[in-house]
Amino acid sequence: MRSLAAVFFVVLAAALAAGAASARFVDPPDADVPAGTHPAQIGRFAVLVYSMNRGSKLKYVSVSDSVVRRAHQGGVRYSMVVTAADGASGATAQYQVLVWGIPGTYQWMLLEFKKIN
């Protein structure tokens, strides 16, 4: 379990470093998700954590069917369908993903990542 936590923090540090060089996204006032969290960001996080943990070479493609469940054990649960491509063959597949996190913090966990097609 420690190695998964170490991978998580390395991924988080890399994501923060990459995000520091990019333009800041401004949330629309009527956003359906908590400020600073967007389905595409969470989908990329899920694919990256899964790939690093399993040694696979998946690449994020898109997110569909994103559902936000607010106020779950001090954080927010995000349930979504993520499309990812295999790095070697380029074949795409869809995955049911469940991520829990606290917006505005470094506390994020990938709870579920399973192939659905």
Rank of each mutant, 00 (worst) to 15 (best):
A23S: 11
V68Q: 05
P103C: 09
A6T: 12
S62D: 13
V10E: 15
M52D: 04
A35T: 14
D65W: 01
L12K: 11
V76Q: 07
V97M: 04
K115Q: 13
L48H: 04
F9D: 14
V7E: 08
R54E: 15
Y50K: 08
A91E: 15
D86F: 07
R2T: 13
S56W: 02
N53P: 00
S62F: 01
I42N: 02
S64W: 00
A15Y: 00
L110G: 01
Y78G: 01
F8R: 11
G55D: 09
D27G: 03
P29G: 08
F25Y: 10
R24K: 11
G101N: 06
H72N: 05
P29N: 09
Y106V: 10
F113W: 02
A13P: 03
A17L: 10
V7G: 00
A6F: 08
Q96E: 12
V97P: 01
M80Y: 02
T83P: 03
V67I: 15
V61H: 05
A13Y: 08
P28R: 15
Y60D: 12
S64E: 14
G55W: 06
G74V: 11
I102T: 14
R70K: 12
K57H: 10
D86W: 07
A71P: 00
S66C: 14
A35C: 03
V11M: 10
T92L: 00
G74H: 11
R69G: 02
V10L: 13
A17V: 06
S3C: 06
A84K: 05
V49M: 15
P34E: 12
D27Q: 10
V33C: 07
T83H: 02
F25H: 12
V76S: 05
G19S: 04
L4Q: 11
K115R: 15
G36V: 12
A13T: 14
S22I: 02
A18R: 12
M80N: 00
M1R: 08
V67Y: 10
P28F: 10
G74E: 13
F8W: 07
A17K: 06
P29C: 08
P28W: 11
M52E: 13
S22D: 08
S62H: 04
G19E: 06
G101D: 05
A31Y: 12
F113H: 01
N117C: 00
L4T: 12
V68N: 01
A71C: 03
Q94W: 00
N117Q: 05
G55I: 07
V76R: 04
G87Y: 07
G87H: 04
S79F: 05
A14W: 07
Q94F: 01
L48T: 14
S66L: 13
A84L: 07
Y78W: 12
A85D: 01
R44A: 04
D86S: 08
G74K: 11
I42P: 01
L111F: 00
G104N: 09
D86E: 15
S51E: 02
D27R: 05
V47H: 02
R44Q: 07
L4S: 11
V81T: 15
S62A: 15
I102V: 15
V82G: 02
V33N: 08
